[in-house]
Design a protein around this nucleic acid. Structure first.
Lengths: 231, 231
DNA sequence: ACGGCGACTACACGTAGGTATAGTGTGCTT
DNA sequence: AAGCACACTATACCTACGTGTAGTCGCCGT
């Protein structure tokens, strides 16, 4: 069902191990993935993994670096090929990442792969720059912050894919799920929940709140019954 | 700096263990957290953890259930107290969750805590229902999908907090970071990147793409140089 | 031919950590 | 007081896994 990447037979053992690591880290997470499991996936002995990469941590770092390079290449590709207003590249990115998408998501949520995130943010900034040019009023926050947030939001789909798939009833990685989510996203991005007036009002409220943070009694009321919850 | 929750001395050992588990699972993740570490945090022996909860997995499930109850209570609170257009409750939720926010995020990304996510989606649906009433054109996707996506997007902030904090230069959990992100979010939600016309156009394009998925040659071009990347 | 070198394997080691068990104290019921 | 249930500790056990070592095979330059 999912595309299988290059034929494993074509690669050097080192490359196969790296790919296996990408896959295993992605599927099980860094902690749960084992060197032996990776070695088995790659069709080599566990010793060879150590021979090539030294340690599990170093292996991860190589994976991060590889992914960074790949994303960078993808970015360039996108920037070169894309016609303005082409959303297709999101889907393209997803497909191109293919089996490594899960790894990306893991790395990002665990706080690694900073260059990858930065790359994506930069792409987002360029994107926003065009949009900003067309709008009359000044943005509420600087472009980088908005770009970072947009990227994070876009990433929430693969990150929470399990929850989303369960909720909407189709695998979000399947063409149907992808299609559904893409439409939902288009709708959200084009039909703001807030009118400019509401937003301005809230922003002002926010500025006030910032001075007077939420009161403690409202907070503690929610978990006051710690003791008697043993059913 | 972060609020410390109820005084540990006040709680039964069982409750303390559960709280310690919430904290440890949240900070280190399920795999990396250890029963011994949780026991130490709770100030008890590791054997007692097993005595009360049987196994690490069961302990997690109890944590999930507890969190679910807490979220449900929070929801009710919100629904009762909130005046329409009050964004404050997002901040309220964040503060109320307090030390358990990290646990929530871990559980959700790992695919657990489904009831919590469902709870949030339901809240989102109610929210959307009001917004939908005011809009003339039909949404592109059903309400549940849009609600789920919105929830996922909102969750992307705590999930990717490390990346976001690094990128914007302030801790997103600090008041300043929170404020900055909230403003960025307000901006995004009120100033759509896409005009309705663009969105409609893209949606139509999307429907076409759905029939003709991205061509393989564009995909494979991105990772064709597998072999020679050993610097 | 041969020595060296790198890819690769088999296997041993140490240990962290989940699980299991036996034992101790304490309070409650009869 | 006896008996019991249960919270709790100390400690042992066992497996999994990261790491380390020694050795084999095959290729290449001389």
């Amino acid at each position: 069902m999912t595309m299988s990447g290059p034929d494993p037979e074509d690669l050097t053992a080192r490359a196969r191990i790296r790919d296996a690591a990408l896959q295993n880290f992605g599927e099980h997470g860094f902690e749960r993935a084992t060197i032996r499991g990776i070695a088995e996936t790659a069709g080599v002995s566990s010793g060879l993994v150590r021979h090539h990469f030294g340690s599990k941590q170093e292996l991860r770092e190589v994976c991060d670096a590889y992914l960074t390079k790949m994303i960078r290449r993808l970015n360039d590709q996108v920037r070169a090929n894309t016609v303005p207003g082409d959303v297709n590249y999101i889907a393209l990115g997803r497909v191109a990442l293919g089996p490594y998408q899960q790894y990306l998501v893991r790395a990002l949520t665990e706080g690694w792969a900073a260059p990858v995130f930065d790359e994506l943010v930069e792409l987002g900034e360029q994107w926003l720059a065009e949009a900003d040019a067309k709008r009359p009023d000044p943005p509420y926050a600087d472009r980088k912050a908005r770009a970072a947030l947009s990227v994070a939001m876009a990433l929430s789909v693969p990150i929470l894919h399990r929850q989303l798939s369960r909720t909407v009833g189709v695998d979000v990685f399947s063409p149907e799920g992808d299609h559904l989510l893409a439409k939902a996203m288009l709708d959200i991005y084009s039909h703001p929940i807030l009118s400019p007036e509401e937003a301005a009002e809230m922003r002002d409220a926010l500025d006030k709140i910032h001075d007077t943070p939420p009161r403690a009694e409202r907070v503690t009321a929610i978990r006051q019954d710690e003791e008697h919850d043993h059913e």
